[in-house]
Design a binder for these strands. Sequence first.
DNA 1: GTGAAAGCGCTAACAG
DNA 2: CTGTTAGCGCTTTCAC
Lengths: 341, 341
Amino acid sequence: MRPTVNDIARAAGVSLATVDRVLNARPGVTEKTVQRVNAAIDQLGYVRDVTAANLARQRRYRLTFVLPEAPELFVATLRDALAEAGRSSAADRTEIRTLSFPAGNPHALVRTLRTLNSANTDGVAIFAPETPHVRDAILRLKSDGVPIVALVSDLPNTERDHFVGIDNIAGGRTAAFLMGKFHGKRGGSVMVLVSSMQARDNVERRLGFDQVMAESFPEIEVLPSLENHDDEDITARVVSEVLDARPDLTGVYSVGHGSRALVEVLRAHHRARQLTIVAHELTSVTREALRSGDIDAVVSQDVGHIVRSALRILRAKIDGVGIVPGQERIRIEIVVRENLS
Amino acid sequence: MRPTVNDIARAAGVSLATVDRVLNARPGVTEKTVQRVNAAIDQLGYVRDVTAANLARQRRYRLTFVLPEAPELFVATLRDALAEAGRSSAADRTEIRTLSFPAGNPHALVRTLRTLNSANTDGVAIFAPETPHVRDAILRLKSDGVPIVALVSDLPNTERDHFVGIDNIAGGRTAAFLMGKFHGKRGGSVMVLVSSMQARDNVERRLGFDQVMAESFPEIEVLPSLENHDDEDITARVVSEVLDARPDLTGVYSVGHGSRALVEVLRAHHRARQLTIVAHELTSVTREALRSGDIDAVVSQDVGHIVRSALRILRAKIDGVGIVPGQERIRIEIVVRENLS
DNA sequence: GTGAAAGCGCTAACAG
DNA sequence: CTGTTAGCGCTTTCAC
């Protein structure tokens, strides 16, 4: 049988209450008694039963997710994953609240963040770009004692407790590796489509992509980035233009979260099967395009894993306990037609 | 506040004990009372607090993992993952015991399984090939009320509660897709190295590989399987022979769990960089070979995920509660140089 | 400073 | 068939 607080109380010759004080590092215990209790603790090899503690404490985890209101399917899949997690969260005393802000509106975001404090939330997960005001708002929350995790896109200059997402430079490098390998030693030229050069994840992916293309596939020409600002019309237009202007095009790298318009244009041009297409994020659109052969590979991250990991990490931070790093590492997934779920 | 058993007892006008009986589907309650209690349950939106229940029940989970004593690194990584999980398992009242049997010795395996029963274990995870005697042993355990999950290699004709691992046909298909795509429309010939045509996972991978090669890459010739029985000397010899006999060789597909000897031979022949090599399972050997460029892609499964999933599923079966399917689906991971961890 | 006692949400004897 | 009661391992008043 595992030792309990009672066992260590008896062994140390003190009461339950005192053991509890020592366990939780609360004041009002003589240094001497503390020593005695700690001695008993490691002598008996005591490990605290966190679930029993939480029961007694009547702890609830009120967690807040702050997500952009964006047109991209990726955000939708993230919301779905969150809803799914919400269904089973009551069992672990977790209440999930989702707050939305219009994508690309830092003011609205900051206003949303301002409503949050330690009185109404125990932990916050944020998927948003880093701006100075956001930084300040996060700092305030942190100093209020609220744990914060950054979701998908890191907030490295804030005091966020953890980043839950992939290394986007490595993500871009992975995309380049596939693009290069799929070209099979033939040269060619590759078009790069980004959402916006403001978005940190897009910039990092492009950076990683360029590194590997230059290092390992110099025979392939990489064209300058084309920004589509997640607008389908813009995408349709610029892609069409390049397709016409560059009959020697051999590949397309879609850096952003959305690929719907790209797939449609390629289909319309009946060019898809002759080009190597690499995109990011597994959504209904990219999934279908992989199946049909319109996209060759998708570099992705598991939104279900991201959500569950954020929940686990926030709860761990709230409880002040450690995490299992291996379990929380979000992998850079490569998805092709054959390992589609 | 979330409703508790007390709330629903009051609402239904019955005692705690009766509520508990209904909750746990225990006999001895009138159909009428059951109805009343259930009505109160969904009216108040009651969700049972599993942690409190487990506390009261003083439930411990004594789980047994049965693993082969095999030379392959993959099994070692699985053991490592298990050890890692063991470190944090005390917190969730789980005691993990590992039993080993000499790989390829069904008798020893059966002898091991025979020692297990509901008195000494609450759940079993097995990584072993399916033979008639194994099937019987599992059947006996099952009928003794012990939940069973199959690990890595399925035991489809037994009553196992769950299979934790990848679809190996899809794994082989994925390997073929990469092999074909990396050839970039050029033809060639590919050597296939299997551990043993007895091993179900090997056979399935080979099957999936052949399907896709035939469907999508008919310009590439796939040579007959070479069995190495996980023996490094055999591997070295047969690979060398083929390398000499077929100067037109363009690729190697390593189906089994072990790839050490293959990598060494290829290195010795200074041929690695001119061949496309696809292997299975991420281990220290394949990891290093990816980094050095000796292997181009690895099709893998996350051993950490497999172990944690097996633990979660066994606990769920013991508690008689459901699982989150998305969380338990083991992905077919594609690992290349750039998304290596 | 320290301890006794009640209680978190649930289960499990044991009565009736 | 149903209810009473004690208790799981821990925290938390409130006294001493």
